[in-house]
């Protein structure tokens, strides 16, 4: 099948790739660009492990075609940490043991960041509903929710 040339921006870098139009953005990130931090847990938008920010919006990258990335701006887990240190959520997740196997973690961090970027004072219930599209089978969510709440508190206190 003829491939399509896509020019896009990922984590601040200009990126070009060729894609079969049937491939998802997740396929392209993982197989063409080498960014394997976004995971495929279901491929049908039910688990959130492939969460990315696509032109400012939280998406499941398995439900976006690679060709749709043309001219867009994409943030993945690989771009979440700063040059000098981790994002506060990343740090808090390690400190509070909010991950076990770590497979859902990139998606959950991206989704949690998307939430805190728009609301740094969410209720616990808001956090739980916002993260309902991110399945975690190891932790029972308890420590994840607490880590997000704690990070939000830290962000508010340093703001």
């Amino acid at each position: 099948m003829t491939k399509i040339h896509v020019k896009t921006n990922i984590n601040g870098d200009k990126v070009e790739f060729l894609t079969d139009p049937r491939e998802t953005l997740l396929d392209c990130l993982r197989n063409h660009i080498g960014l394997t931090g976004s995971k495929e847990g279901c491929g049908t938008g039910d688990c959130g492990a492939c969460s990315c920010i696509f032109d400012g919006n939280l998406v499941s990258s398995c439900l976006v075609l690679g060709v749709e990335a043309e001219g867009k701006s994409i943030e993945t887990i690989e771009g979440m940490a700063g040059e000098k240190e981790l994002h506060p959520l990343q740090k808090k997740f390690i400190e509070m043991a909010a991950l076990q196997c770590g497979f859902c973690t990139p998606g959950i961090l991206i989704a949690a960041k998307a939430l805190l970027d728009r609301n740094n004072d969410p209720t616990e219930s808001e956090v739980r509903y916002w993260l309902a599209g991110n399945l975690c089978r190891c932790t029972g969510y308890d420590k994840i929710i607490k880590a997000v709440m704690e990070t939000a508190k830290d962000i508010r206190e340093t703001a």
Binding site: G45, L58, A132, G133
Partner: peptide, 9 residues
């Protein structure tokens, strides 16, 4: 309909 991720789309 669906999650926050789905709602974006």
């Amino acid at each position: 309909v669906g999650s926050a991720q789905i709602q974006s789309r």
